[in-house]
Amino acid sequence: MNLLTPSLNKLLDLWIDEDIGRGDLTRLSVDNQIVSAYWVAKEEGVFCGGTLVEQLFHKFDSAIQVNLKVQDGCKFKVNEHILSLKGSAAALLAAERTSLNLAMHLSGISTATALLVEQLKGTNVRLADTRKTTPGLRVLEKYAVRCGGGINHRMGLDDAAMLKENHLAWTNGIETTIQTVRKSCPWTSKIIVEAETTEQALQAVEGGADGVLLDEMSPELILTLVPRLRHLAKVKNPNRSSNQIIIEVSGINPKELKTYANTGIDLISTSAPITRSAWIDLSMRFEEHHNQK
């Protein structure tokens, strides 16, 4: 995922302005001496945000040296050094809070994602995120999910057409609606139907949906439903593989991931890593020597 876009550059400027405002009032407490510092982990986790942190520090002072010791997507342990810094004391102090906030939030998402992905190891089922993201931070939070080993669901309403519960409540039927949406979508776009009942799931496949999201169904029901959906998809279109229909589940207890993963599905989507994760505690420490060259 590209993190060097103009839009993300503007976000960094916005976050800096939020914290600095009309100027750092503590700046005069230190001179322009060149000092060294490092980030240390106060708990274990999966790191995320290094590229952005480096950009952020350089916005304060392009001469700051940032040496990432832990790359995005890599695990770290308690007391491990995440990165080292060298530059103006005033610039490092001014950038400290915003950079740490960003990395701690994103690393929390990556860490929570990795814990869930670990439960799915060996099942061939992938963990996907949702659109339940912090406004303005979607790209970064979804990047953090990828760093934790998950995959991204649609980035927005223009990525794919997902017919959810409220859409279906105000339509003339699943099959008719799929046909209507298909006519207006680019041929590259996918159509996914969220099904809360067996009947809705079967209608979605019958109507030619590319994917079916089984919402809040028991693993016992899904275990019997998946073969029916794949068989119907094959009958409907003999020229394509029955596995070409993507079957996804959502609205489940994260503690039951392994149970659901053994039902023959392709994806499990959850908002939990983004909406329920705690920040990972990182801290910046200055080395005790001054007037470095």
Rank of each mutant, 00 (worst) to 15 (best):
F286E: 04
S107F: 00
G156F: 03
V181C: 14
T171S: 15
K59G: 12
S250R: 01
I246E: 15
T133P: 09
A272W: 01
A112C: 14
S99C: 02
S107N: 10
T123R: 12
T113F: 13
Q71H: 06
G150A: 11
S189V: 03
N9T: 11
E80T: 08
I20N: 03
T51N: 07
L102I: 13
E165G: 00
T177Y: 13
V78W: 09
P273Y: 00
H289Q: 09
L68F: 07
P135Y: 06
M1A: 08
Y260V: 13
C147Q: 13
L83A: 13
I82Q: 09
A272H: 10
T198V: 02
G108Y: 03
K255T: 09
A169G: 12
V40T: 12
L257D: 10
I151V: 15
N291F: 08
I178N: 04
E288H: 05
I64V: 04
T5H: 08
P135W: 09
L102P: 06
N166I: 07
V181G: 12
S250D: 02
G207A: 13
S107T: 13
D24A: 01
V35R: 08
V46N: 08
L52I: 14
H58N: 13
L163V: 01
D72M: 08
L127T: 07
H81L: 09
A89H: 01
D19C: 05
E256A: 04
N172I: 00
M104P: 01
T188E: 14
V46E: 05
V205D: 04
E18A: 11
I82Y: 02
N239L: 09
T259V: 15
V78M: 05
E96D: 02
R138A: 12
R146C: 06
G49V: 06
N262K: 13
S189P: 02
V35H: 02
R285G: 04
C147K: 10
T133E: 00
Q200T: 04
S189G: 04
N243H: 11
E216K: 11
D24L: 08
Y143R: 06
L93D: 09
R146W: 01
V235N: 04
I34Y: 04
I64Y: 05
I20G: 06
L225E: 00
I246T: 12
G45F: 03
V40I: 14
